[in-house]
């Protein structure tokens, strides 16, 4: 559960994620996730749906979703890539948008697009179990199971790698047929649990 102290400022949170609040709050559904007309159109086109609401007021507001774990990410001008379903809450000062992810999204069953968060402030991510933060450096690239990937920040190049061969087809696959390979400089958040993915059983 996430507690946010508000003194007249605003946060944007996933629709319906408020569980309790103290003080005076107003909740306003943001059409198009507060990204304006252009954001609305691109979300509609990309299918990366995200229902956000704007919370404003004085006091403490509590957010939670499906008893998942909450991870705070502090951004100083970097760009955070996250699946919209994993995004719980962002500071009002952060900008959100959509971007193309390529094949990774297809393997996760989350579509080809992902959500980006940019600016300076704090974002709260949801994960099934506390997320493990892994650093990627040019010497140490990282491979992640698509089902366990939550988010990443920094200047990372992602590459989709498969180990699919004839063994996968006859059911003798290695169980880890699809991986995302991250190269460059940045941080990757993984959760200790796997979503059901198309690649998960291969």
């Amino acid at each position: 559960m996430l507690a946010v102290d508000l003194v007249g400022d605003t946060v944007r949170a996933k629709n319906g994620s408020m569980v309790a609040y103290e003080g005076r709050m107003s909740f306003k559904k943001l059409t198009g996730g507060g990204e304006g007309l252009r954001g609305m159109v691109s979300r509609r086109l990309t299918g990366e749906q995200m229902e956000m609401m704007e919370v404003k007021g004085q006091g403490t507001c509590y957010f939670a979703d499906r008893a998942g774990d909450v991870n705070l990410v502090t951004l100083n001008g970097e760009k955070l890539h996250v699946e919209s379903e994993n995004l719980l809450c962002v500071d009002g000062s952060l900008r959100t948008g959509t971007t193309f992810t390529g094949l990774r999204g297809a393997a996760q069953g989350n579509g080809l697009f992902t959500t980006t968060v940019e600016g300076t402030g704090t974002a709260a991510l949801m994960s099934d179990g506390p997320a493990v933060v892994l650093r990627v450096t040019p010497q140490y690239p990282l491979q992640v199971d698509p089902g366990a990937y939550v988010a990443h920040t920094g200047n990372l190049r992602q590459e989709f790698q498969t180990g699919v061969n004839f063994r996968t087809v006859i059911g003798e696959g290695g169980g880890e047929a699809f991986q995302i390979r991250f190269e460059g400089d940045g941080l990757v958040y993984v959760q200790p649990s796997e979503r059901n993915t198309i690649g998960g059983d291969l």
Binding site: V132, L142, D145, E172, G174, D201
Partner: peptide, 16 residues
């Protein structure tokens, strides 16, 4: 067991 790996560094291959 299949599907329990969530991430790895280095060169690792997985075979049935």
């Amino acid at each position: 067991q299949k599907g329990k790996m969530i991430a790895y560094y280095g060169r690792i291959s997985f075979d049935g």
